[in-house]
Computed example of a mutant assay.
Amino acid sequence: MLIHCVTLTFKESASAAQIETFRDALAALPDQADFPLRICQGRDLGERPTNADYAIVAEFESTEDFYTYLKHPAHLALPQDHIESVQSVQFLVDEQG
């Protein structure tokens, strides 16, 4: 299994509606993919001033599925004009965790 973790910071001008649209588009991705995909996402709780604004964790059954996802039209269509910065990391886990 491949885990894809993303943190992002929104531009100060990002509205609540834009963030909600982003969230909804992400939530719709698993139904649009032709491979197994699980996504967990949410806004930062604000407990530390250095945290990013938002986090996404996506689980893929294989590395090939991850690369297919990166090129998938629904992924490429995610609204990004209100995002300031993005960082990500990917790692592999076996079935025992």
Rank of each mutant, 00 (worst) to 15 (best):
L45S: 13
A58T: 08
C40S: 14
E64H: 10
T63H: 11
F66P: 00
Q32C: 00
C40D: 15
C40Y: 15
A77T: 02
H72S: 04
Y67H: 13
I83R: 12
A74I: 09
S85P: 03
P73T: 04
F66Q: 06
F66R: 14
S85V: 01
V57R: 10
Q80G: 14
H72I: 03
L26G: 03
S62T: 15
Q80L: 10
A58R: 04
A74Y: 02
E61N: 14
P73A: 04
A52C: 09
A77Q: 04
Y54A: 01
R43H: 08
K71Y: 01
V57S: 14
P36Q: 09
A25D: 11
D81V: 06
I56N: 04
F35V: 02
L76M: 09
P79S: 08
I39L: 03
E47F: 09
T63D: 13
E64F: 06
H75G: 05
E64Q: 09
D34K: 09
I39Y: 00
A55P: 10
P30N: 05
I56P: 02
H75C: 10
P73I: 02
D65I: 02
A74D: 11
P49S: 06
D53K: 05
A55T: 14
E84F: 10
I39E: 08
P79D: 07
D81M: 11
L76C: 06
P49I: 00
S62V: 03
L45R: 12
P73W: 07
Y67R: 07
Q80S: 12
L76K: 13
E61T: 07
Q41Y: 11
A33V: 02
E59Q: 14
R38D: 12
S85E: 12
P36R: 04
C40R: 13
K71D: 13
T63I: 06
D65R: 02
K71G: 00
A58G: 12
A27K: 14
H75F: 13
T50E: 13
L29M: 14
D65Y: 07
A74S: 15
D24T: 12
A74V: 05
D44H: 01
P73S: 07
H75R: 15
A33Q: 09
A33E: 02
L26S: 00
F66W: 12
A33N: 02
Q32A: 10
Q80P: 00
S62Y: 11
P30T: 04
